[in-house]
Structure formats: structure tokens, C-alpha cells
Design a protein around this nucleic acid. Structure first.
Lengths: 252, 252
DNA sequence: CGGTCAGTTGAGAACTTTCAACATGGGTGG
DNA sequence: CCACCCATGTTGAAAGTTCTCAACTGACCG
């Protein structure tokens, strides 16, 4: 099984074969979940760190009166909070969006790997910091941007994140989100998402049909959405901490 | 100098005298900054972890066209991103709001302390996770809540955070934010903040005058704002990892 | 074939912004 | 000591954005 996590971490650090083998172990006991299922719920006691091996998931929080906010998306290779077991109970829920393959990693396995592989420890810190940076960017997105920019910004982010783990095909990528889910993520109604998507489509900035997204001119969409990729920290591919081997750089 | 950080971490772990002394060292070379000054700017190379010893600060991000979003508030005892030096450049800026006393902590000092004090390491993880949880809650706040709830929610959060470091006086606390700053944080205009504050005042939920906030009935404000304090993870005061001593529990 | 879910459309209502004017208070320079 | 200035707070009215409600379409599934 291909571990997208490895590809992602290699955006930051050049991993040795031993590092990669250690990470490979994380994907060994995959669990399968159907689409739209809770993986863990608000109030649960978190015992494991979940790793999304494949598929899309999300964090969300449901208010008493039914409103739901999707707080972040998990794409293949994403880890749900290293060290989450420090907390007594989850303050949000995590659910699948598509069918998902995931690994539940125990504290001892993770402690063991980080104790032996300082480069991995460092790379996981990078991942943690990038995750935090994404959450901050969502704050900016929800607070300052009108619907069109906001949605365009999200599409840029998802596209670049998928590209960093090799899940894009030229200017296209899989895009399984419904308009309702997009609405819950962007703090907009699905009706308004619909109209906003139409606007993005009519200006030729995106092609979205049949669960597939194409961004004909990424630079144009970025510009229209005031998207600055700096917060993804993909700019210094493998230039820290090299161990061996080489990769083709990702151009942003 | 009283280190609010110690008080905060004691919400999670009972620290030994040795732990506290180690933390005390962090406050030894304080730096003073005037109000409304950048501490570090987007694009800078982060060398130090900043610790707010006293005063209020914020993260913010400025868009090309001048719009500004305040992404989070730093209150006394708050750390600005442990391990931030893993990243090459800041993706946001940090600025003071009031005059601030801060300590810039080098990587080596922090590494040294965490190597020797596992309880501190654990407590810093707790702090990191709570910071992330707060950012997620802001996502919910900006995405789902109308102005009155949104502002009420922020006031509850700030009040509880100040209380956890002993900076409240009964039902009151210092509250130096201008309406413009509140607007930048909540994604609302200062005009609308003004009207929303009037509404909160007229219903008796808050008293806000002369840079001082009083919440006569915290439970009522929490209820009106659909505020659930679980994300602050203050609920198990000192019950993990005890070393010695005891504290009065904080009632939430 | 009926049912359900996702997507689409229209029109009015609600919330928030914009713009512009005015009030207040503290601080500064004359 | 007073006059002035500037930042902050306040108010009104119109404009703009987004939501709500409600109806309708198309695709897929059993």
C-alpha cells in the first residue's frame, strides 16, 4: 500500500530508507470505513492517532440547534492530531466523507518511531505546524473573504494539498464533496454554494462535474481568490534534513 | 515576576518545584514592547519562540487589499508556537495590542527544558493542543454564528482564559480591545460590533466600559452564545501527572 | 417505478456593510 | 491653560450579500 504520508513528509525532509520503512509500518493494519461515518465523536476518549491512508474525511462540530461546521478536511496522508491522547476527551468529531482506509496508531508505536527517527519527529512537527497554519488560514477565509473568493481559495488549497501527495492529474483532481458539505465548510448555505460555483464556472476559473475538479489556470484562480500558498510551507521541498535520494521539486 | 505560563500549565499538570523553577527561567530576560507594534512579521524567519509574560497581543494576517483578520489573541502566559523554528518563514504576523512584556526563547533553551522535565513537555503538548482547539472553535464561530452569538462566544472564551491564569476579579476582567480590533477578529465591521455590543449590554449580559468587562451571569452569556467550554480542556485541573502540592479547582 | 439525494432556480427576508456625520475624551502644542 | 487634533465610539439610512423557503430537475438505487 502506498503511504501518502511518506510523500507528504518528503515535501519537508529527505527521508532515509530506514525512515520510510518505519513509516511504512504505520499502514500495515488498515481499517476500512464507509462514506459518511463517524470515526470518533465529540466527547469520546481519544486513544489512537488516526492516519488517513486513503479517502477523504473531515473534522466537524455540531451545534445544539443542528448547525454544523466542517472545521477541516483530511486528505490521504493526513494525520489526525499527533499527541491527541494527551487530552481526555475529543472536543470535535471526525467523520469520513468518502469510503476511507485508515490506520489507528497507538501512542507506543508513535513514541517508538519518533524515538528512533529524529528526521521523522522533525517532519511530524512540520506537519503539525502546517496543519495549524491551514486552520489559521481558514479563520482568515471565513472572516474576510466573500463567497466567491472564499470558495476559490478552498479549491486552490485542496488542489495543492492533493498535488503534494501526487493525487492530481495535470490540472485535475478528484473532488467528491457535495455542495452541502462545501457549505458546511465555508459557513455558507448549499444554495449559495451552488450560485457561487456557477459564477466560478461561468468565468472559466474552474470546471467541476462528475466529482472531478479541473483548474485550467491555477494562477488565475489563485489571483482571483487572493490565494497565497505560503501557509502550506511547501516551498522548500526536501531542502532541510536530507538523508539520501532525490526528488523532483514541486513547482508552486 | 509572576509567570502566568506556570499557572496555565498547572491547569493540566501538577508541576514539581523543579519544574516551576525551570519555567521561571523563561521569564528572566523580559523584553518590553509598546502597544500596537509588530513583534514578528509575515515572511520573517522565526528564530525564537515568543512567550507573552504580560499584556495582550494577537496574530493577524493582512490581505493585499488592506483587509485584516486577527487570527487569535495572546493573553499573559501564552506561547507563540513551540517549534515554530521548524518553518522557514512566518505565514502571519504577531503584534502587540497593549504594552507587552515578552520573552524570546531560543530553541536550545526549550530543548534543554523539555529534555529534563517530561511533565513540562507533556504540559506544553497540552497547551499546543488547546491552542489548536481554540483555533478550530474560531472556525466554528466565524462560520456558523451570527454577530451576537459570535461576540458573546469570544467574550466567554477570553474571560475563561484569563480566569485560568488568575487575571479575573470576580465577574470582571481587563478588556483593552477596541471595537475595531474586535471587528477584525470576528470578521465584522467595527460599526456592527458597536451595535452588537449595544445589544449585549441592553440585555444585561455584559457590562463593558472603560476597558473593563463584567459578565454578571456567565452561565447566561454562555447559554446565549451557545458556548461550550469543553474545547479549552480546563476540566481536569491538575488531575493528570501530579508531582506535589495542591490547588483549588477552577469551577467551570 | 417510486424514492431519495444532490443540484438548480426564484423571490422575498434578514443580516451586515458602507458611507457619512457627529460625539467624546485624552493628549499635545502654543 | 486653552485650543486643537486624533482615535474611538455612536448613529442613521441605503446598498449589498447571504439566507430562507419552496418548488422543481435529474440521476441513481432497490
Amino acid at each position: 500500500m502506498q503511504l501518502y504520508l511518506i510523500r507528504k513528509l518528503e515535501c519537508f525532509a529527505k527521508l532515509s530508507m530506514a525512515d520510510k520503512q518505519a513509516l511504512q509500518v504505520l499502514g500495515e493494519k488498515p481499517r476500512r470505513c464507509a462514506a459518511r461515518q463517524d470515526i470518533i465523536r465529540e466527547g469520546d476518549d481519544p486513544q489512537f492517532v488516526n492516519l488517513i491512508l486513503d479517502g477523504w474525511a473531515c473534522r466537524y462540530k455540531q451545534l445544539e440547534d443542528g448547525r454544523r461546521q466542517i472545521i477541516s478536511f483530511f486528505l490521504p496522508g493526513d494525520l489526525c492530531d499527533t499527541h491527541i491522547y494527551v487530552l481526555r476527551q475529543m472536543d470535535h468529531s471526525i467523520a469520513t466523507l468518502t469510503p476511507v482506509t485508515l490506520a489507528s496508531i497507538s501512542r507506543s508505536v508513535l513514541d517508538d518511531i519518533t524515538a528512533r527517527h529524529p528526521r521523522i519527529t522533525q517532519a511530524l512537527w512540520w506537519d503539525t505546524l502546517v496543519t495549524a497554519a491551514i486552520q489559521r488560514e481558514w479563520t482568515v477565509n471565513l472572516g474576510q473573504r466573500p463567497a466567491t473568493e472564499r470558495l476559490g481559495h478552498l479549491l486552490c488549497e485542496i488542489f495543492l494539498r492533493l498535488r503534494s501527495v501526487g493525487l492530481t492529474d495535470g490540472a485535475s483532481c478528484s473532488f467528491p464533496l457535495t455542495q452541502g458539505e462545501l457549505g458546511d465548510a465555508m459557513g455558507l448555505t448549499s444554495v449559495h454554494i451552488n450560485r457561487t460555483l456557477q459564477e466560478l464556472r461561468s468565468t472559466g476559473l474552474i470546471i467541476l462535474e462528475g466529482r472531478r475538479l479541473t483548474i485550467p489556470d491555477l494562477a488565475a484562480l489563485q489571483q482571483a481568490s487572493l490565494f497565497n500558498p505560503n501557509y502550506l510551507h511547501l516551498d522548500h521541498v526536501g531542502s532541510h534534513l536530507d538523508a539520501n535520494g532525490s526528488d523532483e521539486p514541486l513547482d508552486l
